[in-house]
């Protein structure tokens, strides 16, 4: 039986911020003493505008091109593990699909957010660096129709084999039939 002291969430997030500093926009850093250690002001530290600012979360917007570099940087620094990949359809009007990569480390959660156009959503596969992500990518592909370049397996995971093409159930314009 083990009982090890818990690393305070502030320290974990400081580490994450230091690792992710190249991808944190300057306006979020401005006004801080020397900019390091960061500890962006908690009330507005969430860089995403929709965030509610939970003190154990750090959200960083990343472009699809940079995604692999960012994840590799997190892994190289031994920060956390991939908890899951979440897809969110922001709707026909917004015209975007948001792909969230959640990394957990102790109490802290870092979420990398990649926004891709709804008409042609493409993200790179992260299976090259995190092999266990294959299931998550298959789910993202069949539920949201996000093309994942170089993913090892594109078969259906949850949906039936005879599921119609180009029909993605978790997109907002997919309407469930009333029974």
């Amino acid at each position: 039986m083990l009982s090890e002291p818990i690393t305070p969430v502030e320290d974990l997030l400081k580490q994450a911020e230091a690792i992710l500093i190249p991808w944190i926009p300057e306006e979020a850093i401005q006004g801080l003493d020397d900019g390091y250690p960061l500890m962006l002001n908690y009330t507005d530290r969430r860089i995403k505008v929709t965030g509610t600012g939970f003190p154990d979360c750090l959200d960083v917007n990343v472009s699809a091109e940079e995604l692999l570099t960012v994840i590799q940087t997190l892994l190289d620094n031994d920060w956390g593990y991939l908890a899951t990949i979440t897809g969110v359809d922001l709707g026909v009007e917004a015209g975007e699909i948001e792909v969230l990569y959640h990394f957990c480390h102790g109490t802290a959660v870092v979420t990398l957010s990649v926004k891709v156009p709804r008409e042609n959503p493409v993200v790179p596969s992260i299976c090259g660096i995190i092999p266990s992500a294959s299931f998550y990518e298959r789910e993202l592909l069949e539920m949201f129709g996000v093309t994942i370049t170089n993913t090892p397996n594109t078969d259906h995971l949850f949906l039936p084999d005879n599921w119609p093409d180009n029909t993605y159930p978790l997109r907002k314009d997919f309407v469930m039939h009333a029974n």
Binding site: T50, G51, C57, A83, T84, C104, V109
Partner: peptide
């Protein structure tokens, strides 16, 4: 807003 909730189920982490 958005929130993440994690709990340890008998089989492991539920996210």
């Amino acid at each position: 807003g958005e929130v993440i909730s994690r709990v340890e189920a008998p089989r492991g982490e539920v996210f």
